[in-house]
């Protein structure tokens, strides 16, 4: 009897830790991780305590009926932003409440969400490159400069994806991408293509902007999770520094 209760809490805890770490690594803010895990635990009838840091999650599950509790720790894997999973888990947490899902049901849904496909690589590359030329247009670029920004962004993102595949340090991958993109757009400045090629040079690295870390950093800080906010902010700053370093290298090479 006691073993059965223990087994149940153990399963629930593993599932909750899974949900929490998955949300954290896919780019949800600390407040959202806490709300979602609490909501699922409530629906299953457990009391929980959570400690959320950027790279790991600590959870204590208390079963009110049997007075058992378990505490354990799980490391957050560095996945990269994936809003499809964040959105899916958030929808799931409501179904858990409304339709009284069980732990195996939730586990199956998590498996399904992880297996959901990304957009095809060519679509990602070309739409992000389109965003690159959109940036160039927003800053006042025209005609040829848009094309330069498109090509440079395409190449930069391709280099970043390849570097991540080869498991380079993520900041180093951003440096490579920024360098690759600015080498191409710097070449257009050197050759004097278009009326204001500097615009393409400045905007070709904007696809690397650390938008998610910086916005989540602010959200966390005014939400009271100051430590997590600082960690995310510093992460964003290192990315910005890596982008700048790539730009500077290209600038020195072409002596612009």
């Amino acid at each position: 009897m006691m073993d059965k209760a223990y087994q149940n809490i153990k399963e629930a805890e593993e599932m909750l830790l899974n949900v929490g770490t998955l949300l954290m690594s896919c780019g949800a803010s600390t407040g959202r991780v806490r709300t979602t895990v609490n909501r699922i635990a409530d629906a299953l009838g457990y009391n929980i305590e959570l400690l959320i840091t950027n790279r790991s999650l600590m959870l204590k599950v208390i079963d009110e009926q049997s007075d058992h509790f378990i505490a354990s720790l799980k490391r957050t894997s560095p996945h990269g932003v994936n809003f499809r999973v964040v959105s899916g888990i958030s929808r799931m947490s409501w179904k858990v409440v409304e339709e009284n899902w069980t732990v195996p049901q939730i586990n199956a849904e998590i498996e399904r969400l992880i297996a959901l496909p990304h957009y095809p690589r060519l679509i990602i590359l070309s739409s992000v490159s389109l965003a690159g030329s959109a940036f160039c247009a927003l800053f006042g670029g025209k005609g040829v400069e848009l094309v330069v920004a498109f090509v440079a962004t395409f190449f930069g993102l391709f280099v970043r994806q390849e570097a991540l595949k080869k498991q380079f340090n993520p900041y180093l991958a951003i440096f490579f991408a920024s360098f690759a993109a600015s080498i191409l757009s710097g070449l257009s400045v050197r050759l004097g293509i278009g009326s204001s090629p500097e615009l393409a040079f400045a905007t070709s690295v904007l696809f690397l902007v650390p938008g998610v870390p910086l916005i989540n950093s602010f959200t966390d800080m005014i939400d009271g999770n100051i430590l997590n906010g600082i960690v995310r902010g510093v992460h964003g700053l290192i990315i910005a520094f890596a982008i700048a370093l790539g730009l500077l290298c290209a600038k020195f090479i072409f002596n612009i």
């Binding site: 932003v81 809003f83 499809r84 899916g88 992000v128 490159s129 959109a134």
Partner: peptide, 10 residues
């Protein structure tokens, strides 16, 4: 839109 696709939104 470009960033939305990069972040793999539904």
């Amino acid at each position: 839109l470009g960033f939305a696709i990069l972040f793999n939104v539904p």
